[in-house]
């Protein structure tokens, strides 16, 4: 028998399961960071494949910006209940109060930068030594250089020049007190791979990933932003009704929707094969601000 019948998705899956089991084998208090987005949903499926019939060796942790899509919160709670796994939710709202931080302001008050504080606090509270996340290297140029086991100092900071070499599939999770490791099992997956996997595995997703009618604000860039109570709009802003879907789910004040009639995963994959704009480019408002946006945020402890 040869291994050639293994599809590339089988190989990516096997690699991701291997990485998750390394986390289980090497760390005492790991966590899986769950955003409700498709990448972290895929992670939960991979965790089932890695650990069933046992329980997950980690809780799901959601850092709640308070700027969520209600569909995503409902999905999160249903999923945790169906899996029968522990869900820990910590709110950016509470971090702002406890630490006396200034809440995001402005027209599109993204709480993405504030998320970092909540994340570091929850890591400290539970003494997590490893946090599994759904980041992919194809998302962004700085991510393309990050290791699968990425060591962070006690402030969660990433230092690209001090990264450990990562050889073969040997993952070095040795850390000192105060340090922790961010682990990215689907590093080598692209957006298209994720969708093809969702299709193959028949994974249910929050409804906002599919085409639906939504009231949106038209941004100067032409991007569409779903209307929400958090936006500070001007009289002159153009409000429209459009058939849209989301390619990522994040803070709703800075995650744009794309026009789409796609009602099934097949439609979405077809959309993607035609799409000529990257996932982040299409949907994230806050990366465009500076060329080194992501690198800076990672250095400061962001996921």
């Amino acid at each position: 028998m040869s291994t050639s019948h293994l599809d590339y998705l089988d190989r990516l899956e096997a690699e991701a399961i291997h990485i998750m089991r390394e986390v289980a084998g090497q760390f005492e208090r790991p966590a899986l960071l769950f955003s409700g987005g498709k990448d972290s949903i895929v992670l939960t499926r991979l965790a089932e494949k890695a650990f069933r019939p046992g329980r997950f060796p980690f809780p799901l942790v959601h850092v709640d910006t308070g700027h969520n899509f209600p569909e995503v919160l409902a999905y999160r709670d249903e999923l945790a209940a169906r899996l029968g796994e522990k869900l820990i939710v910590r709110k950016v709202e509470d971090t702002i109060k406890q630490r006396g931080l200034r809440d995001a302001t402005g027209k599109f008050p993204s709480r993405n930068p504030l998320q970092t504080y909540t994340l570091l606090d929850v890591i400290e509270e539970f003494e997590f030594d490893a946090c599994i996340g759904g980041a992919r290297r194809d998302e962004e140029k700085a991510r393309a250089k990050e290791r699968i086991f990425s060591v962070r100092d006690e402030f969660g900071q990433w230092d690209p020049k001090r990264q450990r070499p990562e050889l073969w599939n040997v993952y070095n999770g040795k850390i000192q007190k105060g340090e922790n490791v961010r682990v990215f099992p689907i590093s080598n997956w692209t957006e298209l791979d994720v969708w093809r996997y969702i299709q193959r595995e028949n994974i249910a997703l929050p409804s906002i990933y599919f085409g639906h009618e939504r009231t949106c604000v038209v941004l100067p860039s032409g991007q569409l932003l779903g209307l929400s109570e958090h936006l500070q709009l001007d009289e002159t802003d153009e409000i429209v009704q459009r058939q849209v879907r989301y390619r990522t789910v994040g803070d709703s004040t800075c995650t744009a929707a794309v026009e789409s009639n796609a009602s099934t995963i097949d439609d979405i994959i077809e959309d993607l094969l035609l799409a000529k704009v990257s996932e982040r480019g299409a949907t994230r408002l806050d990366d465009n601000i500076s060329e080194a946006g992501m690198e800076d945020r990672k250095r400061n402890g962001y996921f």
């Binding site: 290297r137 140029k141 700085a142 393309a144 250089k145 690209p160 080598n188 692209t190 690198e295």
Partner: peptide
């Protein structure tokens, strides 16, 4: 491919970078 600020500033590649593309026949890493 040159993703980090120092690389862009100095016009060099510092660290290993991973890129992905797919043709109808293969996925490449």
């Amino acid at each position: 491919t040159d993703g980090l600020r120092a690389e862009r500033e100095q016009g060099i590649t510092i660290d290993v970078a991973y890129k992905y593309f797919t043709t109808p026949r293969r996925k490449f890493i």
